[in-house]
Design a protein around this nucleic acid. Structure first.
Lengths: 148, 148
DNA sequence: TTACAACAATTGTATATACAAATGTATAGC
DNA sequence: GCTATACATTTGTATATACAATTGTTGTAA
């Protein structure tokens, strides 16, 4: 992906600015492709992320603030996001018996089954996105990203 | 920035997935900081981007589809974005005489003056974001990003 | 010249997100 | 036990974005 071509500019961009724009362009592209892959399953990237977190709990519930902490893109409004998953029967919510302020959220078998299908679609896109990278390059990239 | 810490997970993430998450995290962070830097000027990152494009036109107007092509994050609704800039007197819009379907958009002196102040704020944030990178590392990062 | 397709921008509508305020619950200090 | 404070979630509201349909304009081919 060439920055100058994508934003159709001829003038030279300073290295710092270029790097920042580059990061934005790549993430836009990634998000587009991931979102499209999820479209047939009618879940957003955020919802998919929450389902993955819940699966990672291995039966243990997660409450809203925990979900929010672990989400890739934090958002102020996890309640309404979970509402959407609830409407699809992908999650179950219960008031925590020990602390009635907390809400415990579980993934349902239906949610798990849907998630498995999404996994396949996502994995395919991930491979496509990273197809031009060798393992060494990916490690190198991760090392550089750590510096942010 | 450590992926595992940010999303508070202990389980190992496969290299590919980790890279993609990493990119998202970094861009979230960058966008947050850039958006905050622009907050005092009451413009969004998108609006700032449009102003910069218009300045780059050096007096020549840009129409909406041109703006959209050059924006870092393309969006379907450039009309309303320009409406906002218009409301602040940062831009001027005219129907193109040669092709009345087209709208010509110019940055105003007021827009230019505001943009200059924003530049300073943005430059400061850009430096902060990239403070841990050497020039060589930035070049290396850009080369890797080209592979997407 | 008229009919039709392509183009450029705008508008309508649904959905998503950000931010602040409100609700209900638990905890700590007196 | 009572009050104030902190906590966890929910709700209200404004703003942003995505997507489709519409409007007005131009170019073209019969």
């Amino acid at each position: 992906m060439n920055v100058e071509k994508v934003i159709k500019t001829t003038s030279a961009i300073p290295l710092g600015k270029r790097t920042i724009i580059h990061m934005q362009l790549v993430r836009n592209k990634m998000d587009d492709e991931l979102t499209n892959a999820l479209k047939p399953y009618e879940v957003s990237l955020q919802q998919f992320n929450v389902l993955r977190i819940l699966r990672g709990q291995k039966g243990k519930p997660a409450n809203l603030s925990t979900l929010n902490e672990r989400m890739v893109s934090k958002m102020s409004n996890t309640t309404r996001l979970v509402d959407k998953l609830l409407a699809k029967d992908y999650v179950r919510r219960e008031v925590c018996a020990a602390n009635r302020r907390k809400i415990e959220i579980y993934i349902t078998p239906k949610g798990n089954a849907a998630l498995e299908k999404m996994d396949t679609a996502i994995l395919k896109v991930e491979k496509a996105i990273l197809q031009h990278f060798t393992k060494t390059e990916l490690i190198q990239l991760n090392t550089l990203l750590d510096k942010f």
